[in-house]
Amino acid sequence: MARRRVPRWLAANLLLLPAGFWLAVFLLVPLALVVEYSFATRDTGPLRVVLPWTTRAYRTALDPAFLPIFGRTLTYAGLTALACLLLGFPLAWFIARHAGRFRTALLAAVLVPFWASYLARIYAWKALLDGEGLVNRLLGLVGLDRDGGFLLTDGAVILGLTYGFLPFMVLPLYVACERFDYRLVEASYDLGHGRVSTFFRVVLPGVWPGVLAGSLLVLVPAAGDFVTPKLLGGVDQSTFGSVIDDQFRGGNNWPLGSAMAVLLLLLVVVVLMLRGRRGEDVL
C-alpha cells in the first residue's frame, strides 16, 4: 500500500521535528545556561558566571531542611489536582453528555472568567475570603464562619490554585467524555452492575486518558505556581517554586536556584523514565 512507503519512525520524527526544533532552541539551550549557573560560585548574576566551579549549590539544595517545603508543594499541588478533578468531572460529563448543542457555549463559559486579569481575580478572592468578606458572612448565617476569615490559610491557597487551574482539568476531561461510548454504561447496567461499580469499572477506565492528561496539566503547573500561595497564603507558604524564585530575585543565590531547578528537572525525567508503559500513550 502507498501509505507504508514512509517508515513509521521516520514519519513520527518528521511530525515531531517542528516541536523538537522549537524546544531545542528555546528550551534546551537556555536550560544549558541554568546548568552552568548551578555549578558557579555565589554572586553569579544575570549573564555573569563567577568561578571557580563548585558543587556547593547542590549540597545546599539537598539539605533536608528543604524537605518540608517539598512536602508542602506536593500537598498543595496534589490537593489542587484532586479538587479540580472532583469539580471538573461532573462539569465535563454534563457538558459532554447532556448539553446538546450548547456544548461549545458551556465550554466557552468555563473559559470566559479567565479574560479577567489574574491579579484582579486573586484580589477578588482575597476580598471574598477575608474576615469581613462575603464567604465568611454567608457561612456565618449557618454558624460556620471563622474568626478572621479564610484568607491566609492553606485552604485559601488550594482554593485559589483550584480556581486558576480548573480549565486545564475540565477541557481534557471533556475531550475524553465526549468520545466515551455511553452504550457501555447501558451494557454495564444491563449486566446488573450498580452505579458505583459502573463508574469505577466502565466510566473511569473509559475516560482515563483525559483524567491523566488533566491531572498532569494541573498537578505540575500548580506545583510550580508560587504567586498564588504568596498572595493567599499565610506565613508558611513557601513552596519549591517560591524558594527557587527567591534565589534568583533579590539576586540572592543564582547557583542555588539553578541547582534546585536542575534537580527538579532530573526528578521529573527519572519519574517519566520509570513510569513504564502505563499511560505511555498520554504522557
Binding site: Y123, K126, D130, L151, L152, K230, G234
Partner: peptide
C-alpha cells in the same frame, strides 16, 4: 515573630487600604 504575624509579603498597599 513569624508565629504572630499573618504574612511575609511585599504586597501591602491593598491589604492596608482595605483593612485586611
Amino acid at each position: 515573630l513569624k508565629k504572630k504575624i499573618g504574612q511575609i509579603t511585599s504586597d501591602v498597599v491593598e491589604p492596608l487600604t482595605s483593612g485586611q
